[in-house]
Amino acid sequence: MDVLNLAHGAFFAWGAYAGFAVLNALNGLGWVETGTLGQGILSVLLALLAALAIGGVLGLFLERVIIQRVYGDHLKQILITMGASMVLAEVIKVLWSPNNQTVLVPLSFTGSYDVMDVVINKFRVVAIVVGLAVYAGVMAVMQKTKLGIIIRAGVENREVVQTLGYNINRIFTGVFMAGAALAAVGGSMWGIFREQITPAMGDENLIFALIVVIIGGMGSVTGSFLGACMVGLAFNYVAYLVPKLALGANILIMVIILLIKPWGLMGREQ
C-alpha cells in the first residue's frame, strides 16, 4: 500500500493480549487447561478470532484518524506510526501490566508429534499451516481478483483509480484493516506458541519483520516469504550455536543482501 507502518508490531502485541484475555476468560469456564480436545480447539479459535477483531478495529481507527492524513509522505508516516506504536504499547501496559504474562494453552496444543525420531511441536504445525494458507490467500487475492487489481492500481495512482469510479479511500482502509488483523492473529499465535507475552513483544517482532521485508524487497509477497524463511532458518541455527548472536546473524544477512541487491531479493527499482 506504499504505507510504512511501524505500528504493525503494536497490532501484533495487541493480538497476543486479546488472545491471552480470551483464553483467560475461557479458563474460568474450565475450557482451557482442563477442557476436552473440542473445547481446547474452540478456545484457541475464539482467541484467534478476538485477535482478528481487535486488529481490525485498531487498524480501522489508526487508518481513519491518523494515516489517512499522511498518505504520500513517507517521512511523516514513519514518524507518526512510530508514535502510534509507542502509544499502543503504553495502553497495553495500562490495561494489563508492564510485566510478562503467562498465556494459558489448552493441553491438546502443547506436546509434540514424534515422526521418525524428529520431534515436532504440535502448535508449530498449526502455525505453518496457517502461515501457508495466509500466503496463498494473499497471493490469490492480489493476482487474480478484481480487488487485487484495484489495490495494485491504487498503490500506483490513487487519483486515476478514483476517477474510474472506485472509492479508493474506503478500499485502502479495508486493506489496512486486513493487514492489522493478520498481524494481530500472528501475534496471538505467537503468544500461544511461546506461552508468554510482554508489552515489548511488538517492537521485538517488528525488527524481524523489517529485516524480512528489507531482505525480500518491498512490495513483494513472495520476497517476504523468501526473506522470512532465510531469517527464520538463520536465527534458529545461530541461536543453536551462539545464542547471543542470533539477531546479529540476521543483520549480517541483511547487510550482505543489500550489498548485492540494494532493493532486496525480489524488490524492483522504482
Binding site: 511501524l6 513517507h74 517488528l206 525488527i207 523489517l210 529485516i211 521485508v213 541483511m254 532493493w263
Partner: peptide, 16 residues
C-alpha cells in the same frame, strides 16, 4: 537506495 531503507536498517541495527 531510498531514504526509507535507511530508517529500517537503522532501526534494526539500533535494536541489535
Amino acid at each position: 537506495v531510498k531514504a526509507i531503507f535507511f530508517a529500517m536498517v537503522t532501526l534494526a541495527v539500533a535494536e541489535f
